[in-house]
Design a protein around this nucleic acid. Structure first.
Length: 92
DNA sequence: GTTGAGCGC
């Protein structure tokens, strides 16, 4: 079965790569709707991970299977479907 | 170098 969300979590990311770079990479798998690299809200520095949203679910699955383990800037990225945005207490 | 975003007490 394949019932993942359109949101993709990218871990083990190189600090040298940018959202624009990620989008080009993920467009190989399908339609990229959005790319985001969250920064540390305390320091404003990169944490080494990113989020990518695909226009369709099949594209997201293709991204996981094709781009997971892809070497970017000398570092292999980990692509997985993202979990719900675990807010400590703001879900309701 | 791994789950964002408001978040501290």
């Amino acid at each position: 079965m394949s019932n993942d969300k359109l949101k993709l979590f990218v871990g083990n990311l190189s600090f040298n790569v940018s959202e624009q770079r990620l989008q080009e990479i993920f467009e190989q798998a399908g339609e990229v709707t959005s790319v985001a690299i969250p920064l540390d809200r305390s320091t404003g520095r990169k944490r080494g991970f990113a989020f990518v949203e695909m226009g369709t679910q099949v594209a997201a699955e293709e991204a996981v299977k094709i781009l997971n383990g892809t070497e970017v800037d000398g570092r292999q990225i980990a692509v997985n479907p993202s979990q719900p945005q675990t807010r400590s207490r703001g879900s309701w």
